[in-house]
C-alpha cells in the first residue's frame, strides 16, 4: 500500500470511528452514517462589543439538546442535518445589590431551535486531497423574539444558505496518523441579516489504539455588514446581526467500540464582535452505522 493510500485508509477509519462535524472534505460512504445526540450550551455574563472589547451583561444561557447526523446516499452525496429539538434560552434575575429588591425578573423560553440541513458532494474520491462542496440551509425553526419585549431567542428568524468548500488531507504526526481540513464558505442570509464569510481549520489524530480521538479546531465568521444595523434588532447572544468571531475549540472523543462513543468539546472565542464572550461546551453520544 502506498503512503498516500495508507493515509486515505486511515482517514476513513478515523472518520468512521470518531466522526467530526460535517466530515471535512470526506463524504460518508454510501449506506453509512454518523449520528450524535448532543447537548451544547453557553452561559455568558459578558460579550464582545462592536470594537472587540469585553463588556458585562446580565447572565444569559442557551442550551441546545439535539441530533446531528450524516448519511451517505451515494459515494459522493452525503446528507447532513443539525436538529436541536429542545432549545432553552434564559436570562437571570437582576437584583439590587443594595436593597435585595428584584429589579428585572429573569425569564426563560423553551422551543425547537434553529436547524440546518444540507448536502455534501464529494468532488474528489480516493485522492490525497479530499475536496467537497456543501450546500446547507439554515431553517428558522427557533423562536426569534421570545419573552417580554422579545429579549430571548432560540433562533435568528431568518432562512440562510451556506455554500462551503472543504479540503482535507492525511499526514503523519510523528508516529501518529493525523488529518487536517480547511474550509471556506459564503452564507447568504435573509430578513435583514448581513451575509457572512465562514472559514476554519481543524486537525486531529487517534490515540491509545484508536480509543481516544483528539481534535483541535480554529474557525470563524466574518460579517459582510451589508444588512440591518445591529441596533435596529433585538437579537443578542449568538443570534445578533453583524456578529463575528474567531474560535478555538479542542474536542476529545472516547470510542467505546467501533460503533459507539462519546465526546466532549470546549470552545472559546479568541476574537469577537457583538457575541457572547464566555466559553461554550458540548457533550454527546455518537453512533456509526
Amino acid at each position: 500500500m502506498s503512503h498516500n493510500k495508507y493515509l486515505i485508509s486511515f482517514i476513513f477509519v478515523f472518520l468512521f470511528s470518531s466522526k467530526i462535524f460535517a466530515g471535512g472534505g470526506w463524504p460518508q460512504p454510501k449506506g453509512h452514517g454518523y449520528f450524535k445526540l448532543f447537548q451544547w450550551w453557553v452561559v455568558a455574563d459578558q460579550h464582545f462589543t462592536d470594537n472587540g472589547k469585553i463588556d458585562p451583561n446580565v447572565t444569559n444561557g442557551i442550551f441546545n439538546t439535539g441530533i446531528y447526523g450524516e448519511y451517505g446516499f451515494t459515494k459522493r452525496i452525503t446528507g447532513i442535518a443539525y436538529v436541536p429539538f429542545y432549545s432553552r434560552a434564559y436570562f437571570n434575575n437582576l437584583v439590587s445589590g443594595t436593597t435585595g429588591e428584584l429589579i428585572d425578573p429573569g425569564e426563560a423560553i423553551n422551543s425547537f431551535g434553529d436547524s440546518k440541513i444540507g448536502i455534501k458532494y464529494g468532488l474528489t474520491l480516493n485522492k490525497p486531497i479530499a475536496l467537497s462542496a456543501t450546500l446547507r440551509f439554515g431553517l428558522p425553526l427557533g423562536n426569534a423574539a421570545g419573552g417580554t419585549g422579545g429579549r430571548l431567542q432560540t433562533g435568528d428568524g431568518e432562512f440562510n444558505q451556506l455554500l462551503q468548500i472543504d479540503a482535507g488531507a492525511g499526514y503523519k504526526l510523528g508516529k501518529l496518523n493525523a488529518y487536517a481540513n480547511i474550509y471556506a464558505g459564503f452564507n447568504n442570509r435573509t430578513n435583514g441579516f448581513s451575509d457572512e464569510f465562514h472559514y476554519g481549520f481543524e486537525t486531529g489524530t487517534n490515540l491509545f489504539k484508536n480509543k481516544l480521538t483528539a481534535i483541535v479546531r480554529l474557525y470563524g465568521i466574518k460579517s459582510l455588514k451589508n444588512g440591518t444595523l445591529s441596533g435596529e434588532v433585538n437579537s443578542t447572544s449568538i443570534f445578533a446581526n453583524n456578529s463575528e468571531h474567531l474560535t478555538f475549540s479542542p474536542e476529545l472523543a472516547f470510542n467505546v467500540n467501533k460503533k459507539w462513543g462519546f465526546s466532549a468539546t470546549y470552545a472559546t472565542a479568541l476574537y469577537g464582535r457583538i457575541i457572547f464572550a464566555n466559553p461554550s461546551y458540548s457533550v454527546g453520544v455518537f453512533v456509526n452505522i
Binding site: Q39, D45, T59, Y86, R88, F91, L94, E107
Partner: peptide
C-alpha cells in the same frame, strides 16, 4: 439530556451595584 438541560439552565440572580 432533558434532565441535564433543565437542571443546568435554571434562572439565577445577578446583583448590580
Amino acid at each position: 439530556f432533558a434532565i441535564l438541560s433543565l437542571f443546568s439552565a435554571c434562572i439565577g440572580d445577578d446583583f448590580i451595584d
